[in-house]
């Protein structure tokens, strides 16, 4: 390009298409690098470092301007906000009253629950380590096994309710079958009326059903179902499910059906508790002064 003021007559330069192709290659590789390898973070932060002061400087007059408008709109806004806050305060103090009474009630109920807790059960905390993929039976693997005193048949709960039952025990892990797994039955009773019922899993984490329900029974949506303890497996009083809706008999069946939502978080990865019988932990301690 050094052929004088007029420039050369014929310039050898890279063609338009080639230059464009180069940018396409560069652009695609940038896209891939940025997306797949996140390699351009340094470039981004450098650019942000350069641009930030400029942006701040440019934003400054607008903020000032906004401040002036704010000053005029502030008064009405404050009045509105004050009214709103006052209403909110009244509502909240009413709520607080209600909450205090609820808290007392809750403490009483909890005492009651403690009384009703199954005696002779010792909770053993365990963590879920695997969830085998099996659409028909919902199982979980936990990190406690026969070495920790776990044996087949023991109930497993989480912080909210009944989760399932140990079905297979290995030395350092065990498998539990969830109450929500298909065809898994749990004997329960309605907490409100005490009526004995049987729930059955349908294979969904969020639904279990009561398949054979007397159509005249007093079961309402919102009723909480707790284990009845009649099977000798689950101790009494562990929350299992909450009734969602009761359906009248359909077709030739004389039974109603109820759909319930399980209370325990079957799909969640939370610590669980195995309810060990006390005797499993101390096999010979209490009853054996006279035994050899």
């Amino acid at each position: 390009m050094s052929a004088g003021a007029r420039g050369p007559l014929f310039v050898r330069e890279t063609g338009l298409a080639l230059r464009y192709a180069l940018t396409v290659i560069l652009g695609v590789s940038l896209l891939v690098m940025d997306h797949r390898y996140d390699a351009l973070g340094a470039m981004r932060s450098a650019a942000a470092m350069v641009m930030h002061p400029v942006q701040t400087a440019l934003a400054w007059p607008f903020e000032r301007l906004g401040g002036i408008f704010d000053f005029f709109s502030r008064h009405q806004e404050l009045i509105n906000e004050n009214n709103h806050l006052r209403q909110e305060f009244e509502r909240l103090s009413a709520d607080l009253q209600a909450m205090q009474s609820l808290r007392h009630e809750n403490a009483e109920l909890r005492d009651l629950l403690d009384l009703a807790q199954p005696a002779g059960r010792q909770p053993l905390t365990a963590a879920i380590i695997a969830a085998p993929v099996d659409p028909l039976t919902r199982r979980l693997v936990i990190n406690r096994g026969s070495q920790a005193g776990v044996s087949a048949g023991l109930p497993v709960v989480d912080a909210r309710g009944l989760l399932g039952q140990i079905t297979r025990v290995h030395p350092f892990s065990s498998e539990l079958t969830l109450v929500v797994s298909r065809r898994q039955m749990v004997p329960v009773e309605s907490e409100r009326t005490g009526q004995r019922l049987l729930t059955r899993g349908v294979g969904s984490d969020s639904l279990i059903e009561i398949p054979y329900l007397d159509q005249h029974s007093d079961l309402l949506a919102g009723d909480v179902l707790v284990t009845s303890g009649l099977d000798g497996v689950f101790p009494r009083g562990i929350p299992v499910a909450r009734v969602l809706q009761v359906r009248p008999p359909q077709g030739a069946s004389p039974f109603s059906r109820a759909q319930c939502a399980p209370i325990a978080g079957s799909g969640l990865n939370r610590p669980v508790r195995v309810l060990l019988p006390l005797t499993a932990l101390q096999p010979v301690a209490p009853p054996s002064p006279e035994e050899p």
Partner: peptide, 23 residues
């Protein structure tokens, strides 16, 4: 860089547009 989009997205769009116009 300003918009925080994927690096290269607008760059490709720009070079394509200018290529079309120049062609």
């Amino acid at each position: 860089l300003i918009h925080g989009t994927l690096l290269g997205a607008h760059a490709l769009a720009y070079s394509s547009a200018i290529f079309a116009v120049l062609a």
